[in-house]
């Protein structure tokens, strides 16, 4: 399945995180952070599981439904940020209230890097273990390779699809929470910058191997961050980064042809 709705899960995850932080102003920072992470993951999981469920029960193509859900998620986000959850103090750029400095994720001691990176690495390792070292992951790979074969051997394909989508959405939602809790401190339009789409590129570049995602994600984060530098030093527009990402994506997909033709490029058994 190709789901391209990560952006929607990320946006809603960020919103859920800041909303839950609003409701508990006096709790201890650790409790608030855990609540934010859980809320973001539930919101993201529900959103993508919706696309998975539609696929399973109604046969709706998940690529298209998840993309439509992105636009709906952004509309819901704007509606709530403009209305119910708006911080009255944010005049020009509607935002939710600040989550409070104490509740922010700090930086890893000795570096400028925030703890979100640790969240990401743990998620990658967990995903790797889940996919390659558990019965559930094996079932998931069978269902992904051939649905008919999976049904034939009695795998609960529907449940596998739903859980896989839920987990995918949960990690996208967690990304939203990290963005809110470590970078912005509140949910506003700066959350909607296309990380969800870059994430698809990362997954394809990493050849769908969770461990490979770590270096690839750092690499692409670097390309993203270099956008500002390109703008200042070379006078290139910020869209340069988008063009570069598109080119990388096309090149990677096209290189699929070379499998089996070059001696060192062998397809790994799934």
């Amino acid at each position: 399945m190709v789901v391209i709705g990560g952006e929607g899960a990320l946006v809603l995850g960020g919103l859920a995180a800041s909303a839950i932080a609003m409701t508990m102003p006096s709790a201890a920072p650790l409790v608030v952070q855990i609540a934010m992470a859980v809320a973001a993951m539930i919101a993201g999981a529900a959103w993508i599981a919706l696309a998975g469920g539609l696929r399973h029960w109604r046969g709706v193509n998940e690529t298209i439904s998840s993309l439509l859900l992105v636009y709906i998620a952004i509309a819901v986000f704007n509606h709530l940020v403009e209305g119910l959850l708006r911080d009255p103090a944010s005049l020009n750029k509607p935002s939710t209230p600040n989550i409070g400095d104490a509740n922010m994720l700090g930086t890893i001691p000795g570096t400028d890097i925030h703890w979100g990176l640790a969240y990401g690495i743990i998620a990658c390792v967990l995903a790797y273990i889940l996919i390659y070292r558990t019965t559930f992951g094996f079932g998931m790979r069978v269902a992904g390779g051939n649905v008919k074969a999976a049904r034939m051997v009695g795998l609960p394909v529907g449940r596998l699809v739903l859980v896989a989508c839920g987990l995918a959405g949960a990690s996208a939602g967690l990304a939203g929470m990290v963005e809110v809790a470590a970078v912005h401190g509140k949910a506003n339009a700066s959350l909607i910058v296309g990380y969800g789409y870059t994430g698809i590129l990362v997954a394809f570049l990493a050849r769908h191997n969770p461990l490979a995602i770590i270096p690839v994600a750092i690499q692409l984060g670097g390309i993203g961050a270099s956008g500002g530098l390109l703008q200042r030093r070379l006078g290139l527009p910020d869209a340069t980064v988008l063009v570069l990402q598109g080119l990388i994506f096309i090149a990677i997909l096209t290189s699929e042809v070379l499998y089996g033709r070059l001696p060192w490029l062998k397809r790994r058994p799934a």
């Binding site: 190709v2 527009p237 063009v243 080119l247 994506f249 997909l253 096209t254 699929e256 042809v257």
Partner: peptide, 30 residues
């Protein structure tokens, strides 16, 4: 052209071209 190569997924190529097209349009359209 890309899709006529063997083993290339047309949906994934579409997503790639979507990113590329939007990026190129922003780049040239400034």
């Amino acid at each position: 052209l890309i899709c006529s190569l063997p083993r290339v997924n047309d949906i994934a190529v579409g997503i790639a071209l979507m990113l590329f097209g939007i990026g190129l349009a922003f780049f040239l359209g400034k």
